[in-house]
């Protein structure tokens, strides 16, 4: 099926239960919160599948439960109902091989860029010299050569988010869960970092679930866009994006023929004016 498979994925594929299973299957997940004794249903009934090497974008009205969904997927909160399967196995606790990144870069101010990138490797007990080596390579790939010894306070917003991306990618996750990671960046920086992310992710056939408010970002980056309704949220529409261009150059993607049409249709689906 694929030419390049990440080592972790290949290892998992060896397990009989996981053979050929998509990285992530979400079936009929529901979640409510208690707000002052009132039960507020946030996720109504949500199902989706993330295939290997696929980038799926999720757009939806503000406050509809996108972040809640992501937190459920990576085991930070438990769903009330439904099933979540990682690589064909029922989820229990924190899933392995999953990277998580937010709009806030969450860099530790007392660590240099390099040591921030090394955080996950350190936690998993990777040796110091190997961790340093891998972190250096990752920083270089994201255009941060020469900034390894900088503290976060001395880096620009775009550079900080690149360090955060390096911190996520250096652990070689099979799946990335991204929650509006580029929302705070200016337009040029955003296009560049989107392109770099798409390139690195597609090169290694990692899968991505990207939450975004930016419909143009969703259409230009993703293979599939899922539109959610407002609370209690469920899937409203799914778009398979076929732009017919190399999907690692966001400028080309935004200039391709079908782009504007997809954006318009998704915009209409989101129904922003009726909020």
């Amino acid at each position: 099926m694929s030419a390049v498979v990440s080592p972790a994925l290949a290892a998992r594929a060896g397990a009989p239960a996981a053979a050929g299973a998509p990285p992530l299957v979400v079936a009929h997940v529901a979640k409510s919160f208690d707000a002052d004794g009132r039960v507020v249903p946030v996720i109504g009934d949500l199902s989706l599948t993330l295939n290997e090497g696929e980038i799926v974008a999720i757009v939806g009205p503000s406050g509809c439960g996108k972040t809640t969904l992501l937190n459920t997927l990576c085991g930070l909160i438990a769903p009330d109902a439904g099933r979540i399967g990682w690589f064909g196995k029922e989820m229990s606790g924190q899933p392995a091989g999953v990277g998580y990144m937010l709009q806030k870069d969450l860099l530790l101010p007392w660590r240099t860029a390099l040591r921030n990138v090394m955080l996950g490797l350190e936690i998993r007990g990777v040796g110091l010299s190997e961790a340093e080596e891998r972190a250096h390579v990752m920083l270089d790939q994201l255009g941060l050569h020469g900034f390894a010894d900088h503290y976060p306070t001395t880096l620009s917003g775009g550079m900080r988010q690149r360090v955060a991306l390096a911190r996520t990618l250096v652990n070689e996750p099979d799946v990335l869960l991204l929650d509006e990671p580029f929302a705070a960046l200016d337009f040029q920086t955003k296009l560049l970092i989107e392109s770099d992310t798409a390139r690195l992710v597609r090169e290694s056939r990692r899968s991505v679930l990207l939450i975004t408010h930016d419909i143009e970002e969703a259409v230009s980056v993703a293979d599939r866009v899922i539109v959610l309704t407002k609370r209690p949220t469920r899937v409203k529409a799914v778009y398979d994006i076929a732009l017919g261009t190399e999907r690692t150059d966001m400028i080309a993607a935004r200039e391709s023929a079908g782009f504007v049409d997809y954006v318009r249709r998704i915009w209409a689906d989101l129904d922003v004016t009726r909020q």
């Binding site: 937190n71 998580y100 996950g120 936690i123």
Partner: peptide
């Protein structure tokens, strides 16, 4: 939460 997703 980030630390937890990194497996800490």
């Amino acid at each position: 939460n980030l630390m937890r997703t990194l497996g800490a």
